[in-house]
């Protein structure tokens, strides 16, 4: 199962490091990563594989949410199907 992680907020040192560390700990593989500055906002999008995940999906979502609050960013993880179903016929 693949999921998309999005990080949006003010740029600062160590965002990717902090997120990747959590993903490594939870056995989530990063398949693709891209980052850009859009409208002065740091925007990072990661495609990850969560099939070998250690905890359940809700917990990962909570962990990333907590990290987001700590770094004053919005961090979300969503199953990729939400994007596929909205944008592809």
């Amino acid at each position: 199962m693949k999921a998309i992680i999005t990080v949006v907020g003010n740029d600062k040192v160590g965002i990717i490091a902090r997120v990747s560390k959590i993903l490594a700990e939870e056995n989530i593989n990063i398949l693709d990563i891209s980052q850009t500055i859009m409208q002065n906002m740091f925007t990072m999008i990661m495609l990850v594989d969560v099939s070998e995940i250690k905890v359940n999906f809700n917990e990962i979502s909570d962990i990333l949410d907590a990290l987001g609050k700590e770094l004053d960013l919005s961090i979300k993880i969503q199953h990729e199907n939400i994007f596929n179903s909205m944008h592809r016929i």
Binding site: I4, T6, V8, D32, S34, T36, M38, T43, I45, L47, K76, E80, I82, F83, N84, M86, H87, R88
Partner: peptide, 12 residues
């Protein structure tokens, strides 16, 4: 593959 613009549109 879904592009970044589409992903951000959904999030917004």
């Amino acid at each position: 593959m879904i592009n970044n613009h589409e992903i951000l549109e959904t999030i917004k």
